[in-house]
Amino acid sequence: MSSPEEMPQAATPGAVPSPTGIVVGVDGSEQSTCALIWAAREAKLRKVPLHLVTAYTVPIFAASGLDGGYATVDDDVIRQGAEAILREGAAKVAHLEVEMDARVENGDAAGVLVELSETAELLVFGSRGRGGFMGRLLGSVSTALPAHAKCPTVTVPLSCAPRMSEGPEGAEAISKLEKVVTVGVDGSDQARYAVLVAAEQAERSGCTLRIICAVQPYTGSLAWMPAPVDREALFTEIQEQLDAGEKWLLNHFPKLPMEVTLVEGSAVETLVEATKTSELVVMGTRGRGGFAGMLLGSTTEGVRHHAKGPIMVVHDREDPRQGDRSAFGPLLSV
């Protein structure tokens, strides 16, 4: 591993290999520091390289005075500032002794990170970034990444800072966490793939897998329906599908401890609450249909915006393990 002083390099097209481990966005803000520490710990757990990345564009200002034209900021000055931020970040996680490199990219931060996600195993970033290097890497960029990244993404909110501390504060914060990876399900294909990813994460980290399905409470908004909803029958049907799903999952992860919980309540509120005590909460994207109330899609954004802990967002993709799901009992076609 290169020393933090030597590591940051200017990115030259074709000169730097595409990352295959964990990519973390760094911009010098507190948010990105939280994300960096989480990513470094995860890289150590997975035994994969950690890639620190920051990106910038050179600002162009309209020239003032009698002469027309434009003035630009010195590219070298900006790049040197970016390299300094990467060196500082690398120094903060050097004690974890993970294989690590860093790069400065010239371009739109969201576009750069999405491109790197093509080969990365995981993309990690902070949320609600303000200030920091050029004020560009985090914030609104973190909202765009889960929707467009080609690999799973993890958003680490600033409220996780106590968990990332190496001192007594960190030990106390971690002691309040349950050794649990939580995943939200709604019966969709997207949720089933998210469950597989969550199970792998729980197994890797020695956690219990907690599967939660939240069904929206009956409200007056359903008064237009031609027949009243039989809530008891609905819950019975969903529970049968959850039980079948648990059997299927145990077939693929026979030694993994797991809990399956069916609750009546807001999916967003239920999963936000879970972020307070879970090591990680995993969600799919673009859930359609599924159990009443449709857990995924806009719910994913709602949870991310209010989360108190790391959130992993997983895009749907083909997985051969899903092929035998129907053999274990009823499932909802969506």
Rank of each mutant, 00 (worst) to 15 (best):
D186T: 00
C207R: 05
S188R: 02
E178Y: 02
I238H: 02
A214Y: 03
L158R: 14
L145R: 02
V229K: 12
M164G: 04
P162W: 10
S165L: 09
G139Y: 06
P157W: 08
K150I: 01
R130P: 03
P146C: 12
Q241V: 01
G184D: 05
P146L: 11
P157I: 08
V180W: 00
L137M: 14
V197Q: 01
L137R: 00
V124E: 09
L123M: 09
R136N: 07
R204A: 15
I238D: 02
V229C: 05
G245T: 03
L123H: 08
T143A: 12
S188F: 03
D230P: 12
F235D: 15
E203M: 11
L242F: 06
T208S: 06
E240P: 00
S175G: 14
P228M: 06
K150G: 04
G131D: 11
E237Q: 12
Q239F: 00
L122W: 07
G132S: 09
E232G: 10
G184V: 04
R136F: 09
V154G: 10
L137A: 13
G245Y: 00
L137G: 04
I238M: 02
G132R: 06
P168F: 04
M164L: 13
A120M: 10
A233C: 06
V124G: 07
P146Y: 08
S165I: 02
G126R: 11
D230W: 10
E237I: 00
A199G: 13
S188G: 07
L122V: 08
T182I: 05
A194L: 07
A144Q: 14
G135C: 08
A149M: 06
G245S: 11
Q216W: 00
L222G: 11
P226C: 13
K247P: 03
T208Y: 00
G220F: 10
V195C: 02
G129H: 08
P226I: 10
I238E: 06
V154T: 06
P152R: 04
D243M: 07
G129E: 09
V229G: 04
R130H: 14
A233L: 08
P152F: 04
L209F: 09
T219Q: 02
G135F: 07
E200P: 01
R128K: 14
L242V: 08
K247H: 08
T153N: 08
H148G: 01
S140H: 12
G135D: 08
G206D: 13
A171P: 00
R204M: 14
L242P: 04
W248H: 12
A223C: 07
A161G: 02
C207I: 03
G126P: 10
V124M: 11
I212P: 02
W224S: 15
A244K: 10
T236Q: 13
V183W: 02
R210Q: 14
E232M: 05
